[in-house]
């Protein structure tokens, strides 16, 4: 019973004698000062863990640093060397091939899967959880599984095809240049589909059912409903998902490193794996960094592409919410 009285008494004293405010308390109440103060920890984390390594990487690309020996600034020498390096250009080609083919498949299959999952299905929640699995499993683990699936002797695919009688000898999945490229792309597509499918599914579920009903009454077939309702309304989300998918694929490392290490004869070397190989096992930190930096223009253009793709379309703008 004492408390309310005590609080009331406090309030009265506080009201009677406003405490003198120091410059510090005034500054702390200012929006900018306090805001800046609160941002400091985040800014420090970003500086230490993001800006510093990135800047260091760019700097290393301009030096001839090797492991154990601090290098000298050598200007664009690393890049000049790469310009005449056929393995580097093969890696660029591989990366572009890997990214474009895998992204197209991930988009097509992911959208298809999302559309299926958006239908009324028995055990819907269960199936959706299963679909996420490839994405949840650590990449190295799934890569090792694929390594077995693609094994020259014990491949289950070869075994099944031999049992059916379609082939006589096991397929050389990872030993042949074309087979190896197709194999790593297939593994990447398998791993990347859930992200695309689940995100697009979320997008599909934001489209009001009544739009489909209105379109049905307007005489739209199911293909026309997809073409004129689903696709245009999904475009903004497709732009986000595919940007991220392209960035993930372009910088892929783990899958290749476990499956092929860039082989056979560099046929599956991506820029990321080549950069690692030159820098760490090869010891040429400067050159490796230069390869990594060479990825930046590609990634930047992908981001710019999505920036324009993501801009709010005219129909999304304007007045109030629907």
């Amino acid at each position: 019973m004492q408390k309310p009285n005590a609080i009331a008494a406090d309030a009265i004293t506080a009201g009677a004698q406003p405490p003198a405010r120091s410059w510090l308390s005034k500054a702390l109440e200012g929006r900018n000062t306090l805001g800046g103060l609160f941002m400091l920890p985040a800014a420090a984390v970003l500086l230490i863990f993001l800006t510093y390594p990135l800047a260091l990487g760019v700097w290393l690309g301009f030096t001839d640093t090797t492991i154990g020996r601090p290098g000298q600034f050598i200007g664009l020498e690393n890049y000049e060397a790469l310009w005449d390096d056929t393995v580097f250009w093969l890696a660029v080609f591989n990366t572009l091939l890997y990214t474009s083919v895998a992204s197209v498949f991930k988009f097509a299959l992911g959208l298809w899967l999302a559309l299926l999952l958006n239908e009324r299905l028995p055990f819907k929640a269960f199936i959706r959880a299963i679909v996420l699995l490839p994405w949840v499993v650590p990449t190295v683990l799934s890569a090792i599984a694929f390594w077995w699936i693609y094994d020259a002797q014990f491949s289950i695919i070869s075994w099944a095809l031999i049992q059916i009688g379609l082939i006589d000898a096991p397929i050389n999945f990872l030993g042949d240049a074309t087979n190896a490229r197709a194999s790593v792309i297939a593994a990447n597509v398998w791993r990347g589909i859930p992200f695309v499918a689940i995100t697009l599914l979320a997008g599909l579920q934001t489209i009001p059912q009544s739009l489909y009903e209105a379109a049905t009454l307007d005489g739209a077939s199911s293909w026309q409903r997809f073409r004129y309702i689903t696709l245009p309304m999904l475009t903004p989300i497709i732009a986000v998902v595919m940007t991220f998918s392209v960035l993930f694929t372009f910088t892929d490392f783990q899958l290749i490193y476990v499956l092929t290490r860039g082989g056979p004869v560099n046929a599956t070397h991506l820029m990321a794996t080549l950069s690692f190989q030159r820098a760490i096992p090869g010891g040429q930190l400067g050159e490796g960094a230069a390869i990594a930096v060479a990825m930046i223009p590609f990634l930047l253009s992908a981001i710019l592409f999505s920036y324009f793709g993501l801009q709010r379309r005219r129909w999304q703008q304007g007045g109030r919410d629907a």
């Binding site: 739009l211 009454l217 307007d218 005489g219 245009p232």
Partner: peptide, 27 residues
């Protein structure tokens, strides 16, 4: 439904947000 020759006005209007007024009516 499309063979029934009926038109419906929905409670939330169900206008196609990505089409202009003209295109909504012309759809």
């Amino acid at each position: 439904p499309k063979e029934r020759d009926i038109a419906m006005v929905f409670q939330n209007y169900a206008l196609y947000p990505h089409m202009t007024v003209h295109d909504n009516m012309a759809f």
